[in-house]
Amino acid sequence: MPKVLLLIIAFIFLLLLPFLPSILEIIFKRDKDPIPIDQHRTKEPDYFGKSFIKLLTKAFEDLNIQNISKLQLAYIQLKLKREEWVGVLNSEDLLETNVHTSIIFTQDAVFNHSHTFRRELVVFGNAVFLSECVLRSLYVKGDCFVEAPLSVVRWVHVEGNLIIKSKADLGVSVYALEVKIRDRTTFKRAYAKKIDTSDKPLLDKNPTQEGRTININGSFSVKGSITIGDKEGPVVIDGDLFSDGDVQIEGNVWIKGNVFSQSSITLKNGVVIGIEGKVKSAVARGKIFIKGPVRIYGYLHSEKLVEVIP
């Protein structure tokens, strides 16, 4: 009989044992919170730069510093995401090749020497890169001129215009008033009122080109790949284009709406996306390749890479 009793106890024990971790979790609720949802989340193309500069301004305010431009050369310990040392420069030149703190230029800055900035670089005036630089992130209050190879890991936020005349890798996110790309440039996303690769007037500014214009009204969605471009004359599409496959647009083509692809997008030699004064997007899961004179009013977004060869 004791054997049988033991048997019954063992059976019940083994039956209940697998529930033990579950029951402990129900009692102690170690992982009870719902997965966090950011209730304030909105889509902001200038998110990175804006939130960094917000942090910086707040940190200065906490130290009762109102006018950054009057700051003297100093190291300041600021509370950004965490407490960190930040170097402040006026118009002085920077000696180090490798810079390990965030650096703030209170006025215009010209980079004549090569530098590697391991933390953020902030310029409260205009910035001119005349020598090869590697940056983590860049904030420029004025205009930014890239005249030597530039490599950015995270983001670039330029309140004024961004003019790129040298090879540049601008990292994940670019924001500027206008972006002029005049040499091979790569990034993942870019937002500006106007992004162009040439000053040449394209279809949106020069509609009276030779040949008969093909006008298409309305948006369309295609399951496969699509190629748009007509050698006979310009094509104007007043609507959006959605595609599951590759999108190739070449020549005098003006798409006034968005271009969206689950694959790649190629824009070549004369393509215009969007309308001046409005924000439109070209979004691809794959690569976006831009070659020759092209203009985009708004936003470029690729999950892989945007490569621009003017």
Partner: peptide, 14 residues
């Protein structure tokens, strides 16, 4: 697998 892109990155004023 390759995830299908949703439209959240389309910025459009209209």
């Amino acid at each position: 697998g390759k995830q299908r892109l949703y439209y959240q990155d389309v910025l459009d004023e209209d």
